[in-house]
Structure formats: structure tokens, C-alpha cells
Amino acid sequence: MASFQRIILQNRQRSSSTKNVIGVSPEPYLDLISNPFDKRQWNYLSLGPSYIRVNQSAIRPKCQQETEIKNQHKDIYSKVENHLTGYPHLIPRNNAIFKQYSDHLLDYLNQSYFTPLSYNDQLISLEQAQILGSIRRIIQNRNLIIRVTDKGNNFYIGSAVEFEQKATKFFSDTNPFIELSYNPFNEILDKVILLLNTLRGKDLIRKWQYEQMMPDRTTCELAHLYFNPKTNK
């Protein structure tokens, strides 16, 4: 009986100690003289870059929702189809199971997007959308820059002009890159297309792999240089 009482006492102590634990969200790193955001905006930014706004699509126009459903259906279905038709499953693409899966997936997406929200959820969604819109306007009007920090899992907010000056100073101090005298985009793209055609011609890759890897000249672009601010240094 005494040992049983000790176990109960230990459990009570653990439960009481957990109540004193306070969750902490990482505040944004503000590299400005004054804070241009009000309390609601700052609290929203403090949720961090990993926060997902609730019911984002529910307050969009129906045409935008339908476009999003179409894009998601295409993306999910193509990944599942390519996985199941490849090794080791090797299911034929004309198998009826793919049509069934496509229909079920589309029904699920339609139900998920068009199920009416409760009044409270609608208010929360609209409020968060308004807060986010006001944050964007402040960033644009004040010519600010917002970036995800390198290790802090929070936002860096600073002047876009000063950020550009720091980047320029970094280039001049370290000289890590060489400015090209021409745009190599077309040359690189032609080499990729030639290589894919060669691989496909020798039957070293399958048709669906060839189609997926074939770059689109209208949407492709060269890699960009960007910086993740190191606020921990």
C-alpha cells in the first residue's frame, strides 16, 4: 500500500510540474529602429515560418478553389501513378484501378474544399487573412524584406536597402562569384534536352520519365542567389 501511495504521489507531482511548462514561439528578428507592426501583426509573425494559416482556401472564390483542386489532383495522381507503374509494382497504366483512384481522389478533394465552415472558423480565417494582408502592405510600403533565418526557425525583418548593401559588401569583401558576360540559359537547356533525347533514343529511360524530366522553356529559370540571415551570429 505504501509503494502504491508513492506512485500516486509521483504521478501528481509530474502532472503539476507539466502545468508550469510554457510554450514559447520564436519572435521575429527585427533589424529596424522601430517596430512598424501592431500587436496582432507581431503575434502572427511570431507564429513562425512553419505555421500554416487555417482554412486558407475556404475564403477564396470558387474559381480559385476549383483551380487548386485541379492542380492538387494532377500532382497527387501523377505521383501515385508513376510509383505504382514503376518497379517493383509494374501495374499497367490502363488498369481500371487508376480510374477508380482518380475519381475517389477528386471526390475527396471536392468534399474537403467545399464543405461549409462553421461561423467561428469563417471568422478566424477572415481575420488571419486580413492580418496577413496588412503585414504584406507594411512590407511593401516601407520597402522591407522578410526572410527565414538560417537556424533560428523565425523571421528576419529588415530594410531591403540595407539588406542589398550588405549583399554588395559581402561580394566585394569575399569575391566568391564571377559575373557572367552572357546568359547561359539557352545553352544549358539545349544540353539537357539533347541528353534526354539521347537517353530516350537508347531506351535508357522510360517515356514517362522522359516526359517528366523534359524542361519547359517557358517556365524554367536559372538558380537564384539568396541569403538566409544568420541572426545567431
Rank of each mutant, 00 (worst) to 15 (best):
Phe227Leu: 12
Glu164Lys: 13
Ile139Asp: 02
Asp216Arg: 07
Leu225His: 08
Met213Cys: 14
Tyr101Met: 13
Glu27Val: 11
His89Asp: 08
Leu9Val: 08
Asn153Trp: 09
Leu109Arg: 02
Ala223Gly: 06
Ile139Pro: 02
Lys169Phe: 10
Trp42His: 07
Tyr101Asp: 06
Arg93Asn: 09
Met213Gln: 11
Asn154Arg: 05
Ser125Tyr: 08
Arg12Pro: 04
Gln140Lys: 11
Ile193Met: 06
Lys79Trp: 02
Val192Lys: 12
Cys63Trp: 11
Ala58Lys: 15
Ile193Ser: 00
Tyr101Arg: 02
Arg217Ser: 10
Thr18Val: 14
Lys39Ile: 09
Tyr182Arg: 08
Asn11Gln: 14
Ala129Leu: 09
Phe170Ile: 01
Asp75Val: 00
Leu222Trp: 01
Ile188Thr: 05
Lys191Thr: 08
Arg217Lys: 10
Ser50Asp: 10
Leu117Tyr: 05
Glu162Val: 04
Glu127Asp: 12
Ile145Cys: 09
Asn110Val: 04
Ile91Val: 15
Tyr226Cys: 09
Ser15Gly: 04
Lys19Phe: 05
His224Gly: 07
Leu90Ser: 06
Arg147Pro: 00
Tyr29Gly: 00
Phe4Ala: 13
Ile145Glu: 08
Pro176Cys: 02
Tyr87Asn: 14
Pro61Gln: 07
His104Asp: 11
Arg6Ala: 08
Gln100Arg: 12
Asn35Pro: 06
Ile135Trp: 00
Glu127Trp: 01
Phe177Pro: 00
Tyr108Thr: 11
Leu105Ser: 01
Val161Gly: 03
Gln111Phe: 14
Pro116Phe: 01
Tyr51Asp: 02
Glu81Arg: 14
Gln65Leu: 05
Ile157Asp: 01
Leu204Val: 00
Asp107Leu: 10
Thr218Gln: 15
Leu45Gly: 04
Val21Ile: 15
Asn95Met: 02
Pro116Val: 03
Met1Gly: 15
Gly201Gln: 10
Gln5Arg: 14
Glu187Asp: 08
Asn82Val: 03
Gln130Met: 12
Asp38Pro: 00
Pro184Gly: 00
Val24Ala: 07
Asp38Met: 03
Ile59Arg: 04
Ile135Leu: 03
Gln10Asp: 01
Tyr44Met: 09
Asn71Tyr: 05
Ile135Cys: 00
Leu106Phe: 13
Gly158Gln: 09
Pro36Met: 03
Leu106Asp: 08
Val54Gly: 02
Leu47Phe: 12
Pro28Ile: 02
Tyr51Ile: 02
Leu123His: 12
Asn35Thr: 07
Phe185Thr: 07
Ile193Ala: 00
Thr67Arg: 13
Pro184Val: 01
Asp173Met: 07
Ala223Asp: 04
Val24Gln: 13
Asp173His: 05
Pro116Asn: 06
Gln209Asn: 07
Arg206Lys: 14
Glu179Phe: 06
Lys151Gly: 03
Lys166Ile: 11
Ala167Ile: 15
